[in-house]
Simulated scan of single mutants.
Amino acid sequence: MEYKAKYITPDIKLSCYEDNFFKSDIMFDCHMLVWFISGETKIVQADATYFFRKGDIFLIPRNQLATIINYPKDGQPHKTVVMHLSKEKLIDYLKPKALVSSEILRYSNHPLLESCLSSLIPYFEMKDLPETIASLKIAEAISILRAIDHGIDNVLANFEEPGKIDLASYMERNFRFNLPLEKFSYLTGRSLTTFKRDFGKVFNTTPQRWLTRKRLELAHYQFVEKKSKPIDVCYEVGFENLSHFSYAFKKQFGYSPTELIGRQ
């Protein structure tokens, strides 16, 4: 994978993937405002799947799990401008609220946001850009979002850290995301030690064994009920490469994904 990134500040970057494919399971610590210059992205969350292409603008709320799959498109690399809307920047504009949103918000082709984000392009080629300019651009983006989306404060003003929640329901909803156990423990409001202890009490097995079994069961369902392709299923249920996925699938069920598909 050839990946290139240029930064104005740590909160504003121009991201470019020139390979055929890039996949990552991610939890963002802050809200992410993204403008698509070229390429295509598929974002899979627990309850929804999104597709984004050239010209699209969207906001991913913080502390949400997602599988992100990036592709080049029409001979162009996957290229985006990404702006981090951190708590430190937002707290100057918003009063904290406890509401939480997992929905990705679309603002495709909105002229104000597109003008704001496209105006950043020349800055990526400059050296020693004053940080005040970058701060002004973030402030502009926040002001535009609040002007065009009257409900956005309920998303942006969520500054709280995750509290202790029901472990079973959270893991049943989010097992497909291949993240370190430290992330799962944080998002369920536990230390890693407490997470492992509570997990054993709830599921009577280790997290890794349970996660592997659940991901393979979901994969089996996708093959049988949705007629999905192995390459798509592999990445969407939390595996990182097709050969390891096929090996684990056959070990679990006694036949490979290809053999299962051939029976149908």
Results as ranks from 00 to 15, higher is better:
E172N: 10
L179H: 04
R209I: 11
K183Q: 13
N204Y: 01
E225T: 09
G151E: 14
A219K: 07
N158A: 03
K183T: 12
I138K: 10
D198E: 10
R173Q: 07
D166M: 09
T193F: 02
V224E: 14
R213G: 05
I144F: 13
G200A: 06
Q208I: 11
I165G: 05
Q222S: 09
D166Q: 10
E140G: 08
V155W: 08
A219H: 04
F175R: 02
M171N: 06
H150E: 15
T193G: 08
K227P: 15
W210D: 03
Y221H: 13
I138N: 07
K227I: 05
S135Y: 06
E140N: 09
L218Y: 00
R190C: 04
A139K: 11
S228V: 05
K137T: 09
I138F: 06
A219W: 03
L211Y: 01
Y170M: 01
S169A: 13
R190Y: 04
V202P: 00
E140K: 11
P162C: 03
F199S: 15
L156A: 01
F195W: 05
P207N: 02
R197D: 14
F177E: 05
F159D: 04
T188I: 09
F199M: 15
E172G: 08
L156R: 00
W210M: 04
Q208T: 10
D153K: 04
P180I: 01
T206D: 13
L187S: 00
Y186T: 06
R213Q: 09
D166P: 01
N204K: 08
L181P: 14
E217V: 02
T206N: 07
P162K: 05
D198Y: 02
V224D: 12
T194P: 00
P180T: 02
G189Y: 03
H220R: 12
D166G: 06
A157V: 04
M171S: 03
T193I: 11
D149H: 11
L192A: 04
S135T: 07
V202E: 11
D166F: 04
G151V: 14
N158D: 10
P180K: 01
T206L: 08
A168Y: 08
A134V: 12
T194L: 13
